[in-house]
Every structure is written in C-alpha cells, then in structure tokens.
Design a protein around this nucleic acid. Structure first.
Lengths: 194, 194
DNA sequence: AGCTAAAAGCTAATGGCGTTAGCCAAGCCT
DNA sequence: AGGCTTGGCTAACGCCATTAGCTTTTAGCT
C-alpha cells in the first residue's frame, strides 16, 4: 500500500471537482475516496467530517471567486466594472455549480473565521464596483446587498434550471445589468421615501 | 393499533412544518413518523419516497405563496404592488425557511406537472406587478427574472444568516424596493443597448 | 347486518453511508 | 539503524431510506 500523498487541500479540491460533476449531494465519502484512489475512512486523516469538508469547499469557492473578481475588475470602473463583476460571478457559478452549492446555508463561527474573511474579500470586490458610481456612503451597504442578492439569486435559479427556456437567459442577464447600471447612475435624486 | 387518519396532504403538511422547525435536511422519515404518531415505514402508504415528499412540499409552497401573493396584490398597482409582492415573498420565506428550501434544485417533469402549473401562477402574480409600470412587452420576461432572482436571492441569503448585522436588513430591503421601483418607472428611455 | 377487499398500520430485514476503533506499513529524523 | 509520526487499511456500529410480508381496521356492497 503505497502512500497517496494527500493533504486537506487536495481532498478539498477533488471534492469540489466531484461536486461540479455529480452534484454536491452525491459527493459521498466513498465516491470521493475512490476518485482519490483510497478507502473512505482514510479521508478522515485529512478532514474532520463531511461538514468540515463542506466548509472547506465553501472557503475554496470564496477564495477562487475573490481572485477572479479582483482580476476582472482591474482597471475597470462604472458600468464596465459592474458588467465584469456580474459576468465573472455568473460564469463561475455556471462552471462550478456543485462547489458553489456548498456556500449556501452556512453559518460563520466568528469574525476570525477564515470563511468570514474570504467572504469579506468577495464583498470588498463588489464594493469596489460601486465606487465608480458616486453613491451616498450610507447607501453603499444597501447597494451591496442588492448586487449580492441579485447575482446569487439569478445564478442559483439558473443553475437549478429554474428559468423557462423560451427566452434567452443571457439576454435577460444583460438586460438586468443595464437596468442596475441605469439605476445606480441616476440614483442621487432621492432621499428616504419609505 | 388504531388508525391515524393520515393522507398525503397531512403528511406533506407535517413535513413542511417539521422542515421549518429543524431544517429540511433534518426531516428524516423517522422524525416525521414520530411527529405523526406512526412508524417510519407506514409513511410509504401515503408518499412514494423522500424525493416525492420533497416534491409535494415544493408544490405546497408554490400554492401557499401563490395564494398569499394574489391576496396581497388585490387592488394594488405600481409601487404599491411591488412593495406588497416583495414583502409577501420575503415574509413567507423568513417564516417558512425549511419548506421553501424544498423548492430549490428541482426539475419539472413536463408542462402538465402540477409543480410547473403552481409555479406558473406565482410568476403570473409577479407579472401582474409589472403591469402597473408600462413596460415594453418584450422586456417583461427580463423584468420578471430580475424580480424573481432578487427576491429569491435576498431571502435565501437572509434566511441563511448571510448578512452582517451592522446595518438593518429591513432598511436595505426597503431601499432595494425603492431602487427597483425607480428603475421600472424611468425605464422607457432606452432601446436595446447590448 | 354481515362479508369482503382495499387500505393503513406494524415488524423484520436489507443496503448504503458516515464515522470510529484499532492495526500496520512508510518514511522522516537523528 | 531504529523509532516515532503519519497515512493508509479492515472491521464494526448506528442511522437512514426503503422493501417485503403480515395483520387489522374500515368502508362499501349486498
């Protein structure tokens, strides 16, 4: 029995890949072990539990998404940056639906949780998009939540096949990006109406 | 052994309630059976499988949400209708996070699938909101997808505790509703840019 | 009212999965 | 070389979904 040279990162990466292929729910310890040329119990030498594995996948996603967003936003601002961020997030989720699913329903344990930190970096990138649209600082949080909710919702619905196919989803996505851009641009003309 | 007087609807309702309390993932056949005063295998006299149960819960959600939306939208239009729809969906998801989770990752089998029909009625209600904002019919699908993605994304993130608590979530939600209302109102001034 | 047959419950059993315990080999550190 | 840590293995347990096959209730028919 030669050694397989595994470590937590390798196991996490393999699990993420498997999740993208067969869906997160089908990432069983047995299937993952088989893919790594190992028996299931051996995995516990590298991860604590399946919940721990999910957590690590989510962390991986936050890091990957954060990196891609930072790259895509280099030198862009305003509408350009918005479109780049939107497409980056959407492409990532479409290419990696399985691992992305690991980020849903996940509670951070505390402020020094690596997951909270990596997640914060993703949010920073989205916040950078907003800098290009001069927005009242008091409203930045709201706009950020708008972007996050919208991207997350759109991508998860599409990943689940929730849109009817009659009308092109890409077209809708571009329309939505336009819509948001227009709203953020013409925004300053208001003041707490509710 | 007296009979428990169960039927598929009662089982589905109990499962939905249990899901809201302990999370959909913890709705085990054993736990559900116990709540109904019955042994686990007896449930199979009413439902085909756990997948079938999930499907039935999702159908229940579509019906409940559809009903609530139709009620809330009675006699409202424009911004009023938008706000009513938004709050109705959000309140429902926050009150029933467990059963709502059953609607995610779910493929409809065909156009006569009851789930497709009930889901269609929910979308009709959202479409009714848009009537108040005269929108180019060609853009209705896009606006519909915007609303759906946004509400779904916001509610699921909040249900998962994904927002930091520093700033009030209700305030953000109202800000977002305002934002969308403004965008839909001032919309007609454009023409296919992408 | 009595009979029958479907429906609804039960126990027992199977197979899969996550996880733990305990054992053995591999390979680094001196 | 020799020992200790590390990473692998097998065996075993418990939980869960599901199936098989039995028994009892109950509704419907005559």
């Amino acid at each position: 029995m030669p050694r397989a040279g595994l470590d937590p990162a390798a196991v996490t990466l393999a699990a993420a890949g498997l999740a993208d292929e067969v869906g997160l729910a089908n990432v069983t310890m047995g299937a993952l072990a088989e893919r790594l040329g190992v028996r299931a119990p051996s995995l516990y030498k590298h991860i604590d539990s399946q919940a721990d594995l999910n957590r690590r996948i989510a962390l991986l996603v936050a890091e990957e998404l954060g990196d891609q967003l930072r790259s895509a936003l280099q030198g862009r601002s305003g509408r350009d940056a918005l479109a780049a961020a939107a497409h980056t997030m959407r492409n990532y989720i479409i290419e990696h639906p399985g691992r992305y699913a690991a980020t849903v329903r996940l509670a951070v344990t505390g402020p020094d949780d690596p997951l909270a930190i990596a997640g914060g970096r993703v949010l920073e990138s989205l916040a950078a998009v907003l800098i290009g649209y001069d927005i009242d600082p008091a409203d930045t949080v709201h706009a950020l939540r708008l972007l996050r909710s919208l991207f997350h919702g759109f991508a998860t619905i599409q990943a689940a096949g929730g849109f009817e196919m009659d009308t092109d989803v890409d077209e809708s996505f571009n329309w939505i990006v336009d819509f948001i851009d227009r709203g953020l641009t013409t925004k300053p003309t208001y003041g707490r109406l509710t």
